Computed example of a mutant assay.
Amino acid sequence: MALISKKSPEQQAQAAAEKARKQQEAEDKRRADQLERERQAFMSTPVGQARQSFERGDLVFQCSIDVMSQQAIIVAMVGSTTAQRTSDPVVVLNAVCHEGWELVNGSFVFVEQGQQSRDKFMSSGQNVAIKGETVGYYLFKRCEENRRKANEPWAQNATADG
């Protein structure tokens, strides 16, 4: 028959403290991992890339932003149309300038990704709908005067949570 071993109050307190320490370590690691994921996500944006480029000492920085996306829609016996989604890049462009850049040039290109066509119903010709996106290409030059104190968006979330 096995004897049931009872822990002394000191042993119980020590086990509870060890469990709490392990839980705190796991929480700290989870928080650090989350911060690193958020930092990586920021660095993959045009603003994050602009920051890295500035810190490297680059003299120019170029980025592209999808300005408008267009989907082709063909409806049988009715015709064709497109569905559009647009975005305003001004917030991103301002944020890039605040990283120490000055906008030199911007240009736009429609990148066709495909098209759908169908013969017109009860007449000659075709209905055609084009799928694609309008991409803005922006060129910046280094401008020390535009650089603002670099904030870390991923760190702001941590201070708000903790």
Results as ranks from 00 to 15, higher is better:
101 W>R: 01
76 A>P: 11
74 I>M: 11
108 F>C: 06
83 A>Q: 09
32 A>H: 14
19 K>N: 07
31 R>V: 14
87 S>P: 07
149 K>F: 08
30 R>D: 05
119 D>G: 13
30 R>G: 10
124 S>E: 15
86 T>P: 02
20 A>F: 05
16 A>Y: 12
148 R>E: 13
73 I>E: 08
106 G>N: 12
150 A>M: 10
128 V>Q: 11
148 R>V: 09
87 S>C: 10
137 Y>T: 11
146 N>H: 15
17 A>Y: 09
95 A>I: 00
126 Q>G: 06
52 Q>I: 05
87 S>N: 12
80 S>V: 02
24 Q>W: 08
72 A>R: 02
45 T>C: 02
162 G>C: 01
12 Q>M: 15
130 I>L: 04
118 R>N: 03
25 E>S: 09
79 G>Q: 01
134 T>R: 07
48 G>S: 02
140 F>Y: 11
89 P>N: 06
142 R>F: 01
21 R>P: 07
7 K>L: 13
41 A>T: 10
97 C>I: 00
127 N>K: 01
28 D>Y: 03
1 M>A: 10
100 G>A: 03
157 N>I: 10
37 R>G: 06
136 G>Y: 03
88 D>W: 04
80 S>G: 09
32 A>S: 14
128 V>K: 11
159 T>P: 03
150 A>H: 05
121 F>D: 03
13 A>Y: 02
154 W>F: 07
129 A>N: 04
12 Q>R: 15
143 C>K: 13
157 N>L: 12
160 A>W: 04
144 E>V: 08
122 M>F: 06
43 M>R: 11
40 Q>H: 02
140 F>M: 05
70 Q>S: 00
7 K>S: 08
74 I>G: 04
104 V>C: 03
18 E>H: 10
33 D>K: 08
69 S>R: 12
53 S>A: 03
124 S>V: 13
26 A>N: 13
2 A>G: 10
122 M>D: 09
111 V>H: 10
43 M>T: 01
34 Q>E: 12
74 I>L: 12
67 V>C: 00
44 S>W: 03
